[in-house]
Design a protein around this nucleic acid. Sequence first.
DNA 1: AATGATCACATACGCGACGTATGTCAACAA
DNA 2: TTGTTGACATACGTCGCGTATGTGATCATT
Lengths: 197, 197
Amino acid sequence: MAGRRAQMVEETRGKLVQAARKAFASKGYAAASMDDLTAEAGLTRGALYHNFGDKKGLLKAVIDQIDAEILDHLRGVQARAATEWEGLLAENIAFIELALDPEIQRIMLLDGPAVLGDPSQWPNQNACLRRATVTIQTLIDNGTIHPMDPEAAARLLNGAALNAALWIAAADDPPATMPKAVEAFQHLAKGLLRAPA
Amino acid sequence: MAGRRAQMVEETRGKLVQAARKAFASKGYAAASMDDLTAEAGLTRGALYHNFGDKKGLLKAVIDQIDAEILDHLRGVQARAATEWEGLLAENIAFIELALDPEIQRIMLLDGPAVLGDPSQWPNQNACLRRATVTIQTLIDNGTIHPMDPEAAARLLNGAALNAALWIAAADDPPATMPKAVEAFQHLAKGLLRAPA
DNA sequence: AATGATCACATACGCGACGTATGTCAACAA
DNA sequence: TTGTTGACATACGTCGCGTATGTGATCATT
């Protein structure tokens, strides 16, 4: 009982979200036209407003999709790590690499916060940060790292990784900048979590 | 020879920038209307386009002004510190406090990067980051802190402070969150800069 | 299977906002 | 004093969002 109706709807939403990802990434949220968006998807603004309410709603849907992909990727990275501690480090470095993708950078890191507010309020970003928070809490209980507020630590780590990515992307020579940023980030992460009180 | 003409111009630009600060801070860049802006300043859009070219130009002028104020403030903080090392710490913590100001947060941290691109490309933000970079380099030469890329370290520190502020502002109970964030940031800063290789 | 209701989407409209082109009046130069 | 420059106002065109309305396909019910 999939319902022919629901299947068509899902397809429509998918086409709209995909077209929006492309437009938002290339032109930016503000400069992206809804008419152009929907036309490229073979639809009109009617479908868009019916399914997503308004332009912000569409951006929200796009962000949810990208965030889910990021979450999947990061889970895989941590799963391949030898220890939880190394997994935490690997996750954040992977996050830096992901943030170099223009699509992720533009939509998730620049327009997203400006339009929808702080990422900690987004449901999935919360999930991402919560993963780090839980991991840090576990490592604190393990005695692996220094006791501290896990939520604050997760947020700071994430913020540092995020800005490292923005710095790399804005640099004159990104490939040359990357290793310096990663090295500095590793110092930062180890220092933050292992430093004595 | 101040020139009566130039004086009037300066006054006009000042009124426009001030009105823009207020509007951008309260409504956000996208939702702020140029007509309303200029009307509140007792002018029209003609003055605006003549002096600043377009809406982005006005935002740039606003950002330059705020950034200069921040720079002044941070200079004062570092001057009052006992050592350069403590000055660096104090500067970043002061930056966290400043970033809690809704005006600074909205304009400098959310809309600014989304509209004008990465802050490292802004002339004055460069100056701010360069200050931190130079300080870190000095401390490395001193042997006070661990050798590393000073630019990367400055950017990571700044990013962590920035996101700490965003986290605090988005928290349920900002006053209660503040000390936790500051404490975590101190751990981070000390750990980053003092940790052995 | 037929019919009425629902719903997904298209079409049409109004409104607001940006940017530009043109006009006007005061300030400077000669 | 007069011609010129330039700072700002006014008027216009255009575009893009959001809403209200229309339409045809799908689902439920008998």
